[in-house]
């Protein structure tokens, strides 16, 4: 699977965005073009009926594997799971804690 999205020690946000969209495409069975249309406000958990707790758990576990991060219980909250933007900001913060997600 994809390597951690860093270029010369810097977090490559575009690469992370692509990886996260590809992962969501895998979970939702979308093609890459459909997933590419995901925006910051696109709703996830609570908005997509197929994205139940089991699917979200699978998504988070796969994020851990693909991005090389560890997601703790306390990390998982409504804000992080509600929109694509929330999930992306969470992943950015996990990969690069010094950088404050917008």
């Amino acid at each position: 699977m994809g390597s951690t999205p860093f270029i010369e020690g810097q977090l490559d946000e575009a690469a992370l965005d692509r990886q996260l969209k590809a992962l969501i495409a895998d979970v939702l069975g979308l093609d890459q073009a459909q997933a590419a249309a995901f925006g910051a406000e696109s709703g996830l958990f609570g908005h997509l009926p197929e994205l139940d707790s089991m699917a979200v758990a699978g998504l988070l576990t796969e994020m851990e594997d693909r991005l090389g991060i560890v997601i703790d219980d306390d990390d998982v909250d409504g804000e992080m799971l509600e929109t694509y933007g929330g999930l992306l900001a969470f992943a950015q913060a996990k990969l690069d804690p010094l950088q404050t997600p917008s």
Partner: peptide
């Protein structure tokens, strides 16, 4: 990993 995924699903549903 199997347990981790299933336990995570349960904690998310509980929350």
């Amino acid at each position: 990993k199997l347990l981790r995924g299933m336990i995570r699903a349960r904690t998310i549903a509980a929350r």
